[in-house]
Design a protein around this nucleic acid. Structure first.
Length: 245
DNA sequence: CATGTCAACGAGTCGA
DNA sequence: TCGACTCGTTGACATG
């Protein structure tokens, strides 16, 4: 996504929506883009440079990790495909959580589609449903739970984007309308300036004047000359001629 | 559970 | 063609 939603939503409506670039941009991505994130060149460290439990809090090492990720992928293709396959299916992920780099599970198409189908039916799961789904998909309940959490969050995010676009359109429409009405008001004021006597005599609430033929109409008077409130709307479109003529 | 973030990964681009 | 790199997606985790 090239545009942050704050760009899209610069409507002045005070929506107060903030949106980090494409949900989130990892530090290594920012680093690669030239954003001033200090890369640490602690390449001399071997194995797990920051300890198993602190790895998530050490983004400055991401570049280091990235540099090796390419090789890792390549190596994996050659001789670790089998191991990786286990990770991909999620079946080996329990054993993988022993302090190494966080493994990326990739759900199979079948797993994804079933999760999606389930999500369409209910966006939250009861413990029973979670268990059943996990068993059926050969995943851990925790994975199913996380998947649903992420899915809800991302659905909401997308909906927010849609709402934002809609509100922006509303704002533009209202701005146009406001501008048009202001213009109309100016015209009416100008008109009033040139014909003060007419307006002084007749209550403005009952006056209908056609600006084209310059006649006032629509005075609802009873027989005694009393002015009755007009049942019609006060405002008419100056530019499209009065309906009273 | 919502939210923010990290990071693995795949796909696409580009220059050598 | 290949490696380096960018970018978007998404599984996983931390926190309130």
């Amino acid at each position: 996504m090239d545009k942050g939603i704050e760009d899209v939503c610069d409507t002045g409506l005070g929506l107060g929506l903030s949106y980090k670039e494409s949900v989130s941009i990892s530090i290594d991505q920012q680093w690669r883009r030239g954003t001033p994130v200090e890369p640490s060149l602690t390449l001399g460290l071997s194995g797990d440079p920051f300890g198993s439990e602190s790895k998530a809090k050490q983004p400055q090492f991401s570049r280091w990790k990235y540099c090796f990720s390419v090789k890792r992928k390549k190596d994996m293709r050659e001789d670790e495909a089998e191991t990786h396959e286990k990770v991909l299916t999620g079946r080996a992920s329990d054993e993988e959580e022993d302090g190494g780099a966080r493994k990326k599970l990739r759900l199979t198409k079948e797993q994804s589609s079933l999760l999606e189908k389930s999500f369409k039916e209910h966006t939250t799961l009861t413990p029973k449903q979670k268990q059943a789904l996990a068993k059926h998909l050969d995943l851990r309940p925790r994975q199913v739970e996380v998947w649903f959490q992420n899915r809800r969050a991302r659905t909401k995010l997308k909906q927010t984007e849609v709402d934002c676009v809609f509100l922006k359109k509303c704002f533009e429409t209202l701005t146009d309308e406001n501008r048009r009405l202001q213009k109309e008001l100016q015209e009416l004021k100008r008109l009033k300036y040139f014909q003060p006597s007419t307006h002084m005599k007749i209550a403005t609430t009952t006056l209908r004047m056609c600006p084209k033929c310059d006649k006032t109409t629509g005075r609802d008077e009873d027989g005694a000359g009393n002015i009755a409130p007009s049942p019609k709307p006060l405002f008419f479109n100056y530019f499209t001629h009065s309906a009273t003529c």
